[in-house]
């Protein structure tokens, strides 16, 4: 298996006044092509910090991290933004759609940043909205979509740029049971059908039970990393 994400000896310390607070204490982790992985752990365990570092949103204090073989620690802010654009898709807990853009424009946004030609861009955006079952709502702005619909647009946006990996942070936290089930099924289907790699930080047992790899973080370290078949997981 090819490692999409390769973390070696990642540490992260925060300063709180004069106190040095360690959030990660030497994490070694490889996420491989086609993984459908959950990242769990108690609050304060460091899973969000790890997700931030994997996503190129934060920098480690020590250690190296590479995505598709590219060392993130060597990049400046402009190049890091470019790497996020081309390699990583994000699904946020609070959806985080751009409020002044319609559903299809939100999906198109990253493609536009990537200079994809207009016709191809629109076609791909519509295709992604169709995949998440929102083809009839493409012209609605986020304020006119339900929470579940917004999260599906966020998934479509994350996938539109065909990233190496999709990082999701508590993707079901703000959704009702049925909508959460639908979203998990959608991501699982995309993983199985198209081989999209997912890494999801979550507390939600429904998500954890559907993933084929389960990583637990505790006290800033990988406490367990379990691979399982879907039958085992389900």
């Amino acid at each position: 298996m090819t490692a999409i994400v390769d973390c070696k000896g990642i540490t992260k310390h925060y300063r709180q006044g004069s106190i040095d607070v360690p959030a990660l204490r030497g994490v070694d982790l490889a996420i491989e092509q086609g993984d459908f992985a959950s990242l769990a752990g108690p609050s304060g365990s460091g899973k969000t910090t790890l997700l931030n570092i994997v996503g190129g949103l934060d920098r480690p204090t020590d250690g190296t991290i590479s995505i598709d073989g590219q060392d993130l620690t060597a990049l400046d802010n402009e190049d890091l933004a470019d790497l996020r654009l081309r390699k990583i898709g994000f699904v946020f807990q609070a959806y985080n759609l751009i409020p002044v853009l319609s559903a299809v424009e939100n999906v198109e946004f990253t493609l536009q940043l990537m200079d994809v030609p207009a016709a191809e861009r629109r076609e791909r955006a519509k295709e992604m909205l169709q995949q998440v079952g929102l083809e009839s709502m493409e012209n609605r702005r986020p304020s006119r979509l339900s929470g579940g619909q917004q999260q599906r647009v966020a998934v479509a946006r994350a996938l539109a740029s065909r990233p190496s990996i999709v990082l999701a942070d508590e993707p079901t936290a703000n959704l009702d049971t049925q909508t959460a089930e639908d979203l998990i099924a959608l991501m699982s289907r995309l993983n199985e059908r198209y081989g999209v790699t997912f890494l999801m930080a979550t507390h939600d047992d429904r998500v954890i039970s559907r993933t084929r790899r389960h990583i637990v973080i505790a006290d800033g370290r990988v406490a367990s990393d379990e691979r399982r078949t879907l039958e085992m997981a389900g």
């Binding site: 402009e78 790497l83 654009l85 990583i88 751009i98």
Partner: peptide, 12 residues
């Protein structure tokens, strides 16, 4: 929102 734009890959 500006944080989001950068997270999505918009250069500073």
């Amino acid at each position: 929102e500006f944080g989001l734009l950068q997270a999505l890959g918009m250069r500073p």
